[in-house]
């Protein structure tokens, strides 16, 4: 049984510098993926449609595009899984990257950022005669991160990259994590030092888009959070990000709920006038809308229970 589907495809003709939408209506088999449909269009209807694709089994990472507004692999997305019974599917190129033609984007910045985290193993001392000895659980965990296929779906949907192209981005940071977490790698501290800078681990806003977009379950944001923990662990605790994290924990542990007035003071420092001034408009707006947090912050009843939870977590580490 075939079903009829309409694909609304975002097109860009580089020779004429012209962007437009084009609709293609075609009969598809029920098990068709979006990629199957795009290939059918390209092969039998419109040879000028530009897209990258190769393996058709979600391992090469070529066909990351935006489908109905979200980045994913075209080869992994069944048409019938899409809302509205698989009809009128919107197909666009990945976001945050310049378009070369139709669905083909320029991934140079993505590759350069991957390159920037020095993505190669840096062991110390002479190589052993045989393999490095390493626990299987650690390696299996790393293999889970290594299963990143560099498709760029996470980069395309990253909300930080939308406002700051200098952010290293989820893919490069997940790649960095893969080395920081590798028992064979000896450059962990240097890596974390570099990642601690502007554009690095503290610039993620934890929006979860990359976790959703990743077709391989790498969960880049979780890796970024793990890198933050590791950075603080090895002593890089003096960035705003690290101090924010630490202050957040301390306040919660003490009071059982967040003190939103103390948090920026602990993060930026009481006498950091520039940052304090920058926060002033936010404070004023909160005040005008009646959202100002109480000046005298009271712990919740039985806050000692929260403290016990913290202690338990601490001892587990």
């Amino acid at each position: 049984m075939t079903l009829q589907t309409t694909l609304r495809v975002s097109r860009f003709n580089p020779e004429e510098q012209r962007s437009y939408w084009q609709e293609y209506t075609l009969d598809v088999e029920p098990q068709y993926t979006v990629l199957d449909a795009l290939i059918k269009i390209r092969e039998y209807e419109d040879g000028s449609l530009g897209l990258r694709c190769s393996c058709r089994s979600s391992i090469c990472g070529s066909c990351a595009i935006r489908i109905n507004g979200h980045a994913t692999l075209a080869c992994k997305t069944k048409l019938r899984s899409l809302a509205s019974g698989g009809r009128h599917v919107t197909v666009e190129p990945l976001g945050n990257l310049p378009i070369i033609k139709d669905l083909v984007v320029d991934m140079t910045s993505h590759w350069n950022k991957v390159m920037a985290v020095k993505p190669w193993l840096q062991p110390q001392g002479p190589e052993p005669e045989h393999e490095y000895i390493a626990p299987n659980e650690t390696m299996l965990h790393l293999a889970g991160v290594m299963s990143c296929i560099m498709c760029g779906a996470c980069v395309g949907d990253c909300t930080v990259l939308q406002v700051d192209p200098n952010f290293l981005g989820p893919a490069a940071l997940a790649k960095a994590y893969r080395f920081v977490g590798d028992p064979r790698d000896a450059a962990g501290k240097e890596r974390l030092k570099a990642l601690n800078r502007y554009g690095g681990i503290w610039d993620c806003t934890r929006c979860y888009e990359c976790v959703q977009a990743c077709p391989k379950g790498v969960a880049p944001m979780e890796r970024i959070m793990a890198l933050r923990d590791k950075a603080i662990e090895v002593g890089f605790d003096n960035t705003y990000g690290a101090r924010h994290t630490i202050a957040f924990g301390e306040i919660l542990e003490h009071a059982g709920r967040l003190d939103e007035l103390r948090l920026p003071i602990k993060t930026f420092g009481m006498f950091n006038f520039i940052q304090m001034l920058q926060l002033l408009p936010v404070g004023l707006r909160a005040l005008m809308r009646g959202k100002m947090p109480p000046v005298f912050h009271k712990p919740i009843p039985k806050a000692e229970n929260v403290r016990r939870i913290f202690k338990k977590m601490e001892s587990k580490r």
């Binding site: 190669w120 193993l121 393999e131 000895i133 626990p135 299987n136 390696m139 299996l140 790393l142 064979r184």
Partner: peptide, 16 residues
């Protein structure tokens, strides 16, 4: 392995 390939290991941490 020295270049960085993450092979599965056995219980002793050697390549399985």
């Amino acid at each position: 392995e020295h270049m960085g390939v993450i092979f599965n290991r056995d219980e002793s941490g050697r390549l399985g």
